[in-house]
Computed example of a mutant assay.
Amino acid sequence: MVLSSLVIISSSKSTLVHNGSPNFSNTENKKLNILAALFTSSGSHFAFFKPLLEELARRGHNLTVLSYNPRKNNNIDANVLPNYNDVLLTDPKFIGENVINLQEKPVDSYFINFDNIFRMRHFGLTYCEMTLNNPEVRQLIKSDQKFDLIFMETFCGDCALGFVHKFQAPFIALSSHEIMPWINDRLGNPDNPSFIPEFFKLHAGPMNFMQRVLNTLSLLADKLAYEIGYTGPHQKLVDDAFGPGVPPLNEIAKNTSALLVNTHYSIHGSRPYVPNVIEVGGMHIGKPKPLPDDIKKFLDDSPEGVLLFSWGSMVNASSMLQVKLDAMLNVFSEVPRKVILKWESDELPRKLKNVMIKKWLPQFDIMSE
């Protein structure tokens, strides 16, 4: 439903910008030129964006996609969607998989937010610098190409807003997770810390008075850290790449036409949203694909069911502290069913008959079996 609405929006034949805002009054068919600036290397982030972009291409729109996850590197024939143009931002080996070392994570505390924020700051500046130094991206910046719509990811920086200034097109923000703390203000979206847990979830669910106070302080600290640590360095990189005259990025951000966020109230809890913040949780879920033979046999031979254990694409589970690994394996050995575990090494330190390890798991396909 959301995709259909978006495609109707994007099919406007009239001018798309009117007094600084999108003008979508005419819904006659038109093939748009769309730029997608997706600067996070994580494959799990891109998995959320990919179905939307491919469907728009299937419907005839012309897409230029700046990403670390090009379709041609995923054994997809480029001729299938010739109007989907990939721009690879860096070496495909630089993908954000298995990059979080569990031994480096601090003990859960009120200070963990600062570790997360500065870790994301490093990622954001790295992605931004590599992107804007990419030869194809530099050529795009210097070109006279026209775009009718821009998609950009909201995660660890606003580097992509330079393209909004350059091409003077309306833009839609995409979030593959809950809304980052610094995004709500630019959309006028309610973000009341007295009952809405901040992004890093020091507390979830009903909070007592002291928890509300700490939640409020944490939210303010997140926004302050972003303003001090992110905005200036990203502005400098954008100014260097796009030349003088780029307005403050936080001013450009206030012109966000809409935000599509990968959440759903049934999982993340209910909260108020302004009309242009749209929950599209599950948009990336399609039809399951056939499983590899070994995984299928493992599941078929398990009438009692199988426990799937995975921390996703970015956490390196094999970096777990030995004491925690021993505790986890002890539980697995006592579970009265088989376990399939995402594990980045070739072997487990302790071999268990009921455990299958894989460096990568088709999670959705497994759960659909």
Results as ranks from 00 to 15, higher is better:
65 V>A: 04
204 A>C: 15
42 S>K: 10
211 Q>H: 11
227 E>H: 11
245 G>P: 06
257 S>N: 14
242 F>R: 03
206 P>M: 04
311 W>L: 14
152 M>L: 15
196 I>E: 02
76 I>W: 01
189 N>K: 03
72 K>T: 03
143 S>P: 05
65 V>R: 03
173 A>G: 13
83 N>I: 12
166 K>A: 13
25 S>F: 10
329 L>E: 00
244 P>T: 06
153 E>G: 10
243 G>M: 03
212 R>C: 09
329 L>M: 11
101 N>W: 06
329 L>Y: 00
264 H>W: 01
110 Y>Q: 05
194 S>H: 08
339 V>G: 14
175 S>F: 08
99 V>P: 04
67 S>V: 02
79 N>Y: 09
276 N>R: 15
204 A>F: 04
217 L>T: 08
227 E>Q: 13
306 V>K: 02
123 F>R: 01
47 A>M: 10
167 F>R: 07
87 V>N: 09
2 V>F: 12
307 L>Y: 08
356 M>A: 00
89 L>G: 07
332 F>K: 00
327 A>G: 08
203 H>V: 13
165 H>G: 11
356 M>Y: 02
43 G>T: 11
309 F>Y: 07
66 L>G: 09
314 M>R: 02
59 R>A: 10
205 G>H: 07
163 F>Y: 02
285 I>K: 07
340 I>K: 11
311 W>T: 01
348 L>F: 01
162 G>L: 05
139 Q>R: 10
93 K>L: 12
13 K>E: 04
294 D>S: 09
196 I>S: 03
251 E>M: 12
267 I>D: 04
109 S>I: 04
40 T>P: 04
106 P>S: 14
163 F>H: 08
289 K>Q: 11
284 H>T: 05
192 N>S: 14
284 H>M: 09
111 F>I: 03
90 T>H: 10
293 D>T: 08
117 I>G: 00
159 C>D: 02
291 L>G: 12
114 F>Q: 07
159 C>E: 01
219 L>G: 07
23 N>I: 00
175 S>I: 05
